[in-house]
Write a protein that binds this DNA or RNA. Structure first.
Length: 307
DNA sequence: TATCCAAGGTAAGTT
DNA sequence: AACTTACCTTGGATA
C-alpha cells in the first residue's frame, strides 16, 4: 500500500495550530488517539500524541478507506498516511486553510470570547465528512463527550470497513448503507440507547436517497438548518452542529447546554425564549460571519473549567 | 454498596 | 405554536 509521510512547520499556518485542542474539543468524534487517552484532563500536554482518522471510501480518490495519522510536536505537524494526497486531506479536515488570525481579529470585543481564544489559540474548526458528522451528533443527545466518542468508535468497529495499514487494522466510519442494514436492537446493544432507532432511520433515509445532508449546502443558513431537521433525531441544535462542523456554515452557533449557560451568565439579553431568535441574538453577539468559531472556543473553554 | 443525577436533545403528546 | 414528558445508558457524586 502507498505511504505518504511528511511534515510542515505550524508557523506556516496563519494563526498557528493546536492539534490536540482541535480534535479533543468535542467538535469531531472521528479522530482517535493511538494511546487511547482522549479527553483526559490530567493529560496537560498530550499534544505530541499520534491521532488518526479513516477517510470513508466515498471521500477518497481510490474509493477505499484511507488512514491518516498525524501528530504535532516541536512546532511541526507530521503525518503518516495511506493516502497519496495526505496533506490536502489534512488541510481540508482540520481547516488548516482558515486564516485564524483574520477570523479572531474580526470577532467583536468580548471578554469571555477573548479569554477562550487566548486559552486555546490555534484550535481550528473541523470539516467532518457529512454523514459521519450527522450520526455523531444524533448520538450526542444527553451524552458526555467521551461517550459520544466511544459510540462512534463502536459503530466503526461493528459496521465500518476495515483497512490494514502499517501493521495495524483500522476501521472506517460506516456507510449509510451499512447502518441502514443494522437493526435497532443491535444498535442498542452497543449502548446507543434511545438514539438507536434515530441512527438507523436516518441512515436509511440517506441510503435510499430520500434525503442527503449535502442537500443543505448552498441554502441560506436558516433554510439549511431546516433541511437537516428532516432527519430523525435531528432538531435545531444537532442541525447547527452539522452545519458548523461539516457543511462550512461558520456562522452557526449550536445552542447546547454550555452555550445556554454562557448566555445566562454573560449575555442575558440574548435569551429570546425560543431557539431561532436566541440563536440569531448570540450569533450577532459573536460577530455573525464567524460566530461558530467563537462558540466552539467558548464551549471548549467552559467545558474545560474556565468561567 | 446503593441511589441519584446529569450528560453538546428530540419526538410525541397536550394545551 | 408553545409547553411537558419520556427516553437508554453510564460514570461520578452523594448518602
Amino acid at each position: 500500500m502507498h505511504m505518504d509521510t511528511g511534515d510542515i512547520s505550524v508557523d506556516e499556518l496563519d494563526g498557528g495550530f493546536d492539534l490536540q485542542a482541535t480534535v479533543e474539543s468535542g467538535q469531531s468524534y472521528l479522530w482517535r488517539r493511538e494511546d487511547g487517552r482522549m479527553y483526559d484532563r490530567t493529560d496537560a500536554h498530550g499534544g505530541d500524541a499520534w491521532y488518526y482518522t479513516v477517510l470513508p471510501s466515498t471521500e477518497t480518490e481510490t474509493n477505499e478507506p484511507e488512514v491518516l495519522r498525524a501528530r504535532q510536536t516541536d512546532g511541526r505537524l507530521e503525518w503518516v498516511a495511506s493516502t497519496p494526497n495526505a496533506y490536502a486531506h489534512l488541510e481540508a479536515l482540520l481547516r488548516l486553510d482558515d486564516d485564524l488570525d483574520a477570523i479572531i481579529g474580526s470577532t467583536p470585543e468580548d471578554d469571555l470570547v477573548e479569554r477562550a481564544y487566548d486559552a486555546y489559540r490555534g484550535m481550528r474548526l473541523v470539516r467532518d465528512p457529512s454523514f459521519a458528522c450527522l450520526v455523531s451528533f444524533i448520538c450526542s443527545a444527553q451524552m458526555r463527550v467521551a461517550r459520544i466518542h466511544g459510540m462512534q468508535t463502536a459503530l466503526a468497529e461493528a459496521y465500518g470497513e476495515s483497512v490494514a495499514f502499517d501493521g495495524e487494522t483500522y476501521a472506517a466510519f460506516p456507510t449509510a448503507e451499512a447502518l441502514a442494514a443494522a437493526t435497532e436492537a443491535e444498535l442498542r446493544d452497543i449502548s446507543l440507547g434511545y438514539r438507536a432507532p434515530y441512527v438507523q432511520r436516518t441512515a436509511e433515509m440517506v441510503a435510499n436517497g430520500e434525503a442527503l445532508p449535502e442537500e443543505a449546502r448552498g441554502l441560506d443558513y436558516e433554510a439549511a438548518r431546516e433541511s437537516l431537521t428532516r432527519f430523525v433525531g435531528v432538531g435545531d441544535k444537532v442541525a447547527d452542529c452539522v452545519l458548523l462542523f461539516s457543511l462550512e456554515y461558520l456562522e452557526a452557533v449550536p445552542l447546547d447546554t454550555w452555550i445556554r449557560t454562557a448566555i445566562e451568565d454573560h449575555y442575558p439579553d440574548c435569551e429570546q425564549g425560543n431557539y431561532t431568535d436566541t440563536s440569531r441574538a448570540i450569533r450577532e453577539q459573536f460577530g455573525g460571519q464567524y460566530a461558530g468559531y467563537a462558540q466552539t472556543y467558548v464551549f471548549h473553554y467552559l467545558r474545560a473549567g474556565g468561567e
